[in-house]
C-alpha cells in the first residue's frame, strides 16, 4: 500500500483566468501506471461504511484509492490484467462493492467485474460478458446495459447485479437492427433508456419491458453523434450529443456538444443549443462526460473545456498542466468534483 501526497505547488504556473470556476482540491499520482485509460470516482463499502474512492484504470492494472482526507490518497486494491488490455471503467450507480471494466484492443471484447473478497481482503475478477461489444453503460438500480454484435445480429441486454458480482436478473431489449454507438439514461423518465446509432438515429426503449418505443432520425449534418445524457421535461426529450467528427463551419463555429429537443410522440426534433469553443480556442472532441447540467470535454488540443448546458456557454478552460496534455475527464459520482487525467497516471481533482 502506498500513500501519495498532494502536490499543489507546481500548479501555480497555471493561468488562473483560464481556470474559471475550477479550484484544485488535490492531486493523485499513480506511479505504477504505464498508460492511464480511464478514471472514476465512486462510493466503496468497507466494514459497513461507504467511503469516497477513486478508481484509476491503466492498460494493465486497475487500482482503487481510498481518501484518507481530501489531500491524501491510499491505494487499497489492485487488479492486474496480463492478456487483454483495459479500455474503460464502467461506473454503475448504486453499486458499492464492485467495479466494472471493459477490456479489448480497439473494440470491447470483455466486460469484467472486479471484486474484493471481504474475508481475505484479496482482489478477484469475474468475466461478465464477452463478444463483439459495441456499447455499454451502467444504469441506476445496480444494472448494466450492453449491446453485442451489429445490425440484425445484435443483442441488447440489461443485467442486474446480484451478490458477488454475478448476474441476478437478465432482460433483453428489442434490437433496433442497426449498430448502437452509445446508451444514455433519461432524467425524469426512470424506465426510459436511450441509444444513439450509427445511422444517426436515436432510439428509446422501455427498460422494464424491453420494448423498442421509437426510432427517431436526427439531422445528418453531424455524423456519428453520441448521446451522453437525456432529460424528459414537459413531454419533450432533451438530448445532449457530442460530435467528434464535425467540420469547422463559419456559421456555428465548432460545436463540441449539442442540445437537441425531440418530441417522442411525433419524432420531430429541433436544435436547441450548440456548445462551441470560445473564440481563439481550437480542437475537436476527444473524450467527455455530462452530469446534470454541466458538460466537460477533453479536446484534441489537450485542453479541457466545460460548458453550463443551461447558460449555453463555456464556463471554464483548463489548459495542459506541466506541459502535459489532458487525456481524460470525468465528473465525480460522489460530489461536484471534476477528475482530470494525464496519460502518465496523474489525476487532478478540481472543485467546480
Amino acid at each position: 500500500h502506498s500513500i501519495e501526497q498532494t502536490e499543489i505547488g507546481d500548479l501555480a504556473a497555471c493561468d488562473s483566468l483560464n481556470l474559471g470556476n475550477l479550484q484544485l482540491v488535490s492531486k493523485l499520482k499513480n506511479p505504477s501506471c504505464s498508460c492511464s485509460v480511464d478514471v472514476s470516482a465512486m462510493w466503496w463499502e468497507r466494514a459497513g461504511a461507504k467511503e469516497p474512492c477513486i478508481v484509476i484504470a491503466c492498460e494493465d492494472v486497475v487500482s482503487l484509492w481510498r481518501s484518507l482526507d481530501m489531500s491524501q490518497w491510499e491505494k487499497a486494491y489492485t487488479w492486474h490484467f496480463t492478456e487483454v488490455p483495459v479500455l474503460q471503467i464502467i461506473p454503475v450507480p448504486d453499486v458499492f462493492d464492485l467495479i466494472c471494466v471493459a477490456l479489448g484492443n480497439l473494440e470491447i471484447r470483455e466486460i469484467r467485474v472486479l471484486l474484493c473478497s471481504s474475508s481475505a481482503e484479496s482482489e478477484k475478477q469475474v468475466l461478465l460478458k464477452s463478444g463483439n461489444i459495441k456499447a455499454v453503460l451502467g444504469l441506476a438500480k445496480r444494472r448494466l446495459v450492453s449491446s453485442i454484435g451489429t445490425f440484425g445480429d445484435q443483442q441488447v441486454q440489461i443485467i442486474t447485479f446480484g451478490e458477488n458480482g454475478g448476474s441476478k436478473d437478465e432482460q433483453f431489449l428489442m434490437s433496433p437492427d442497426e449498430t448502437i454507438l452509445a446508451f444514455a439514461e433519461v432524467q425524469g423518465a426512470q424506465e426510459a433508456l436511450l441509444g444513439s446509432t450509427i445511422m444517426n438515429n436515436i432510439v428509446i426503449w422501455n427498460s422494464k419491458t424491453g420494448q423498442l418505443l421509437k426510432k427517431m432520425h436526427i439531422d445528418d449534418c453531424y455524423q456519428a453523434s453520441v448521446c451522453h445524457r437525456a432529460y424528459s421535461e414537459m413531454g419533450l426529450l432533451f438530448v445532449v450529443l457530442s460530435h467528434s467528427c464535425v467540420k469547422e463551419s463559419q456559421s456555428f463555429g465548432n460545436p463540441v456538444f449539442q442540445l437537441l429537443v425531440i418530441n417522442p410522440k411525433t419524432t420531430l426534433s429541433l436544435d436547441v443549443l450548440l456548445y462551441s469553443l470560445p473564440q481563439g480556442q481550437a480542437g475537436r472532441f476527444l473524450d467527455g462526460d455530462v452530469k446534470d447540467h454541466v458538460a466537460a470535454a477533453v479536446l484534441t488540443s489537450g485542453t479541457i473545456a466545460i460548458w453550463d448546458l443551461l447558460l449555453g456557454h463555456c464556463t471554464a478552460l483548463l489548459p495542459p498542466v506541466s506541459e502535459q496534455n489532458w487525456s481524460l475527464v470525468k465528473w465525480s459520482g460522489t460530489d461536484s468534483h471534476l477528475l482530470a487525467g494525464q496519460k502518465d497516471g496523474n489525476i487532478f481533482i478540481y472543485r467546480y
Binding site: A189, E191, T209, L213, K214, M234, N263, P264, S269, L270
Partner: peptide, 23 residues
C-alpha cells in the same frame, strides 16, 4: 426553439408509447 414545429406534445409520452409498442 419553435415548439409548434414539434407537433402535439403529450406529458405521458412514455406510458402512451409503451402501450402502443409491440412486446
Amino acid at each position: 426553439c419553435r415548439k409548434a414545429d414539434l407537433g402535439p406534445i403529450s406529458l405521458n409520452w412514455f406510458e402512451e408509447l409503451s402501450s402502443e409498442a409491440p412486446l
